[in-house]
């Protein structure tokens, strides 16, 4: 069990709840969703509570994350895109904090489950579709018809555009899920080498230095990946929202 790299993704029920034949139990995953939201919310709330004109260190972390996401959204979707700012910021913070919390040993990684990332991706694409049709009506379909394409190629191009649009939620969710999953499995495997080599005596313990160093390095890499994937998720969200705002481009 200890050396099983898949075990960390196991979902275990903490408070069993069943409604209408479906299992809605409060699980370790739910616990870490709550922890993610609580940690992110509390950090943002408490660090800004003094409303310092000259920010403290922690306050400037909150402000930097605000301005980071704001400039990301403004660059990708223009000033009209700022109506989606709370949404993009929530997504970014949720994914980032979930990824970072998952790096702690024995912690569950919420984003390592495809259903969670896919739900978030569908939320993004759903927002794009609903807002696009609400704002532009059928003009939103211009998104699939690029300008300046010769008539002969148009059906083919439209087909490609539609497929690329439909694959967006899949690529968006699988990218995050696979990165988290693969990173945690790799970490676990290398960490497992350390314990199994260490059990072999002095020579084994000496040999275990190598996978230990690898584990340390991978932890650093995973820290980068945790941030990077949250960033990528947010940036792609901004770009998809830009399609909903300006389907002509």
């Amino acid at each position: 069990m200890a050396t099983d790299p898949i075990h960390q993704f196991q979902i275990s029920k903490l408070i069993p709840i069943e409604i209408g034949g479906l299992d809605f139990s409060f699980t370790n995953s739910s616990l870490f969703m709550v922890a993610t939201v609580a940690a992110a919310g509390a950090f943002l709330y408490l660090t800004t509570s003094s409303r310092g004109l000259v920010p403290s260190r922690m306050q400037s972390v909150s402000e930097m994350s605000y301005e980071f996401v704001a400039s990301m959204l403004r660059d990708a979707a223009g000033s009209h895109g700022m109506r989606f700012f709370p949404f993009v910021f929530s997504l970014f913070m949720f994914v980032l904090v979930a990824n970072l919390l998952g790096l702690f040993p024995y912690f569950f990684t919420v984003t390592s489950h495809i259903v969670v990332t896919f739900a978030l991706a569908l939320l993004v694409i759903g927002t794009v579709l609903v807002y696009g049709f609400w704002k532009h009506g059928f003009g939103f379909l211009k998104l699939f018809v690029p300008e300046g394409v010769p008539g002969v190629l148009l059906p083919l191009v439209v087909l490609i555009e539609v497929i690329s649009f439909l694959s967006r939620p899949i690529s968006l969710s699988v990218r995050l899920f696979a990165n988290m999953l693969a990173g945690h499995i790799t970490l676990k495997v290398f960490a497992g080498f350390v314990t199994s080599l260490g059990a072999l005596g002095v020579a084994g313990a000496a040999g275990a230095v190598l996978p230990l160093a690898m584990t340390v390095a991978l932890t650093g890499l995973e820290l980068l990946v945790a941030f990077l994937q949250a960033y990528v998720f947010a940036v792609l969200t901004c770009m998809y929202l830009n399609d909903a705002l300006h389907p002509g481009h």
Binding site: I6, F9, Q10, I11, I17, L22, D23, F24, S25, F26, T27, S29, S30, M33, V34, T36, V37, A40, G41, L44, Y45, P86, F87, F89, S90, M93, F94, V110, S112, H113, I114, V115, V116, A119, L120, F177, L181
Partner: peptide, 26 residues
């Protein structure tokens, strides 16, 4: 574990609750 469909309703429900509250709070 990520492909165990029976865990999906719980995850989706709690994601909706936590993320929804998080969104509103922010």
């Amino acid at each position: 574990p990520p492909f165990l469909v029976e865990t999906y309703p719980s995850q989706l429900l709690w994601l909706a609750i936590t993320f929804g509250l998080f969104y509103l709070f922010l």
